[in-house]
C-alpha cells in the first residue's frame, strides 16, 4: 500500500506566455505508517504537491500511482482515492458548516454512501481519535474554541478512514498548548491506526519533535528527503532557501564553536540537554 510519484511535474498557466513550473521532476514514495514532515518556503510548491496526492491536480508530466496503479488511468476510481488520502487544509475550521459537531463529522462518510450505523460509528471513532469530549457532540461547532474547532475539522476528514492523512499547517494560529495538543493527538492517532501522516509545517521545532522523515521542497524540487538529524545538518542550505534548523541546533553549533564537545545533530530539547550534560561532565581525575 503506497502512494508513489515518479518524475512528476506540474505547470501553471500553460495557456499563457509565462507558464510557471510549480513542481519539477518530483520522485517520492509515501509508504504505510510513516510520519513525514513536508517543509519549504512560501511558494516552494508544497501545496501544489499536496493537491496532487489525492488527485485534485493532474500532473503535467510523470506518473502518480496508488498501490501500483496510475491514478489518472481512465477507469481509476478517483472518488475512492479521495477517501483514502484525506486532506486537511489550512484553517480547516472555516469549512465547518453543520448545526452540531456530530453531524459535521458525519457529513463525509454519509456522502460515501455508507449506512447510518456505519457513518455514526466512524464519526464517533474519529472524534475519539482527536480527543474531542463526547458531552459536546451536540454543540454548534461555531461556539467552540479555536483548538476544538480544528479537532472537529480534522475528525471530519478522519471519519473517511483515510490511509494517508495530509495536514497543511494544522497548528497555525494556535497557542503553544493547543499546538502541542493537536500534534500529540496526531502522533497518537497515527500510532493507533497505522496510517501515514504528512505534516506540512513552517515550524522546524514541530517537525523535529514529531516526524521520522523530512521532505524539503524548494522551487518545485525536492532538496532533501531524509531523517530529521540529517536534514537539519544542512543548516546553510536550509537557510539559503528561506528555512532554518530548529533553534536547539543553533545553540549546539554555538556551543561547539566555544569548544564544547557536543553533537550538533541533536534536533530536540531532550537530545540537546543530554548532549550538553555529557559535555559538561568533568573527567574525574582522581
Amino acid at each position: 500500500m503506497s502512494l508513489k510519484l515518479e518524475h512528476v511535474s506540474y505547470l501553471y498557466g500553460t495557456d499563457t506566455t509565462l507558464p510557471v513550473r510549480a513542481l519539477d521532476d518530483i520522485c517520492l514514495e509515501i509508504p504505510d505508517g510513516q510520519f513525514i514532515g513536508l517543509i519549504g518556503h512560501t511558494g516552494s510548491g508544497k501545496s501544489t504537491l499536496v493537491q496532487h496526492l489525492n488527485g485534485l491536480l493532474e500532473p503535467s508530466e510523470g506518473i502518480l500511482s496508488y498501490n501500483g496503479r496510475n491514478i489518472w488511468e481512465k477507469d481509476f476510481p478517483r472518488k475512492e482515492l479521495r477517501s483514502k488520502v484525506g486532506l486537511v487544509f489550512q484553517y480547516p475550521e472555516h469549512q465547518l458548516f453543520e448545526v452540531d459537531v456530530f453531524s459535521d463529522v458525519c457529513f463525509g462518510p454519509k456522502n460515501l454512501g455508507l449506512s447510518k450505523e456505519e457513518t455514526e460509528r466512524r464519526a464517533r471513532r474519529a472524534l475519539e481519535l482527536v480527543g474531542f469530549p463526547e458531552e459536546f457532540y451536540g454543540q454548534s461547532p461555531f461556539e467552540l474554541s479555536g483548538g476544538q474547532k480544528r479537532r472537529v475539522a480534522i475528525a471530519g476528514v478522519l471519519a473517511m478512514e483515510p490511509k494517508i492523512l495530509v495536514l497543511d499547517e494544522p497548528t497555525a494560529g494556535l497557542d503553544p498548548r493547543g499546538r502541542d495538543e493537536i500534534l500529540g493527538q496526531i502522533a497518537h492517532l497515527k500510532k493507533e491506526t497505522g496510517i501515514s501522516v504528512v505534516l506540512v509545517s513552517h515550524s522546524m521545532e514541530d517537525v523535529a519533535n514529531y516526524v521520522e522523515r523530512i521532505v524539503v521542497m524548494s522551487h518545485g524540487k525536492i532538496l532533501f528527503d531524509d531523517v530529521p538529524r540529517n536534514v537539519f545538518g544542512h543548516v546553510k542550505e536550509l537557510e539559503a532557501v528561506g528555512l532554518a534548523a530548529p533553534q536547539v541546533t543553533y545553540i549546539l553549533h554555538k556551543l561547539k564553536e566555544s569548544g564544547f564537545d557536543v553533537d550538533t545533530q541533536a534536533t530536540t530539547i531532550p537530545e540537546a540537554r543530554d548532549e550538553i550534560l555529557k559535555a559538561m561532565k568533568v573527567e574525574k581525575t582522581c
Binding site: 530548529p246 545553540i251 550534560l277
Partner: peptide
C-alpha cells in the same frame, strides 16, 4: 497558562 518559553530558555530550564 497554555504558553511556552523560548527554546533556549526551555533548554536552560531542563539543564
Amino acid at each position: 497558562l497554555r504558553l511556552d518559553v523560548p527554546q533556549v530558555t526551555l533548554l536552560a530550564y531542563e539543564l
